[in-house]
Design a binder for these strands. Structure first.
Length: 412
RNA sequence: CGGGGUGUCGUAUACCGGUAGUACGACUGGUUUGGGACCAGUUAGACGGAGUUCGAUUCUCCGCACCCCGACCA
């Protein structure tokens, strides 16, 4: 995409009403637009990055056998009343209609997915099944905060699985945990699996996936020598204690952000919503259900928080909105422009996603904008590129400059 | 939801109970052109309502919005 065609612009100053680094940078760089507290629109660059994250999540969910669907986010009130959540879940948005019918906005989808699964999985032969979607969620938070990390409308991948036995559930649960860890790893993050409470809807222990970041909302205790990690709210150990798992190190406290969770729901929802399958002997049974959430927009915010420097966003290559940021550093030199235009065309023809800064502004402004936008690789075309010194490629994360021939650049 | 705070051009800010200023942006023209360059001109603003006052953007109250701390985070 040519930057002259990109409808957003960068801003020099952060908005006064944002304190969170993720929101300040994403707004300055034109990724998102704030609509109101806790609600953001995703603009060209923001949507590209969000889609990169969603694609990683989708690949991993598909790989473990998940089937993607798209459920309604405007829900009938009945299933919410059947499970008791209509009264109990205080973050549930409830909508009055002029038809005097009441609706809920989806804050999670157990109430919707369970009846769907019930319809299509009447037999043990249909199980296990794992269904997921990637879409918007709505939660009536008392206080939105931390930019895109805790909003009232946000993007989430939510998967639900149904099993005939606890053993089969446990097996699948472990597979999902591993997939989650791969997702974070592919986003450049190191996540810790943390034991936490199951919340008010499950007596069982749940697992949270935590990334250490100063913008986090949770305090965790973790071991640097092994993968032991526990949320402070349920911890039976304290900072400085010997790691109860490996006994090789002491526990450290960290501020972390939750980027996913998995719950063993047991048969609570199938029971409340009347989902029974027939087992081998023809007896009606409730399936064991699990749910697996992963906040995609929150993950985007955490990535910004984790890698940004004083110049702007630094995306890991895997989620950058474009593969290359091509900058023509001498926009008034016809030869440079011709060269950069041709390189843009060739890269694009090769299928590379390129943001081409073809604007008629000084190079300094382009570099500043490029730093702010945070694309991993910057290709700079100046007079020396034509002079045969090779094409300058700058890594956003380190500032390291390397020289490549045109052929190598097109080949990689 | 408890507590605290803030609302001024598109953005960031200043001043003031008596003509609302600056910077950035945008627009026009010119000089520049590898780190947000420069010159000239133009554009554009007091959250809403009520009150106090000769006069309110300024003071008071109500509402709304936004931010922060806490609580909450199925």
């Amino acid at each position: 995409m040519r930057q002259t065609a990109l409808f957003t612009k960068t801003r020099r100053e952060a908005p006064a009403d944002e304190v969170a680094k993720n929101a300040q940078l994403l707004i300055r760089a034109g990724y998102v637009h704030k609509e109101m507290a806790g609600v953001y629109s995703y603009l060209s660059l923001g949507l590209r990055t969000l889609r990169k994250i969603e694609d990683i999540v989708r690949e991993e969910m598909d790989a473990l056998g998940g089937q993607e669907i798209r459920m309604a986010t405007l829900h009938p009130s009945e299933p919410w009343r059947q499970t008791g959540a209509w009264e109990q879940v205080d973050v549930l948005f409830k909508i009055d209609s002029r038809t005097e019918k009441e609706y809920a906005l989806g804050q999670s989808e157990e109430e919707i997915v369970t009846p769907i699964a019930s319809e299509y999985a009447p037999s043990y032969k249909d199980l296990p099944v794992a269904i997921y979607q990637i879409g918007q969620k709505y939660r009536d938070e008392l206080r939105a905060k931390s930019g895109i990390m805790r909003g009232r409308e946000f993007g989430m991948k939510d998967m639900y699985s149904f099993h005939t036995t606890q053993e089969d559930f446990d097996r699948f649960y472990e597979i999902v945990k591993q997939a989650y860890l791969r997702i974070y790893s592919r986003c450049g993050l190191v996540a810790k699996v943390t034991e936490a409470s199951g919340g008010s809807f499950s007596q069982k222990i749940s697992y949270e996936f935590m990334v250490l970041t100063d913008a986090g909302e949770d305090t965790i205790l973790y071991c640097e020598a092994c993968d032991y990690c526990v949320n402070l709210e349920v911890a039976k150990v304290k900072e400085g204690d010997e790691c109860p798992k490996c006994r090789k190190s002491t526990l450290k406290t960290g501020i972390a952000s939750e980027v996913g969770n998995v719950f063993d729901l047991g048969d609570r929802y199938p029971r409340a919503l009347g989902f029974m399958y027939k087992d081998e002997e023809g007896r009606a049974q409730y399936p064991i259900m699990g749910c697996y959430g992963l906040g995609t927009t929150r993950l985007m915010g955490v990535i910004v928080q984790a890698f940004a420097d004083d110049k702007g966003i630094v995306w890991p290559e895997s989620v950058a909105p474009f593969q290359y940021h091509l900058v023509s550093a001498a926009p008034n030199d016809p030869e440079v422009v011709r060269y950069a235009d041709a390189l843009y065309d060739d890269l694009t023809k090769k299928g590379r996603a390129v943001l081409y800064d073809d604007r008629d502004v000084r190079a300094g402004e382009k570099f500043a904008d490029s730093d702010l936008i945070g694309i991993s690789h910057r290709i700079v075309i100046g007079k020396d590129a034509i002079g045969g010194k090779g094409i300058e490629v700058v890594a956003r994360s380190t500032g390291t400059v390397s020289r490549m021939t045109r052929e190598d650049l097109l080949a990689t």
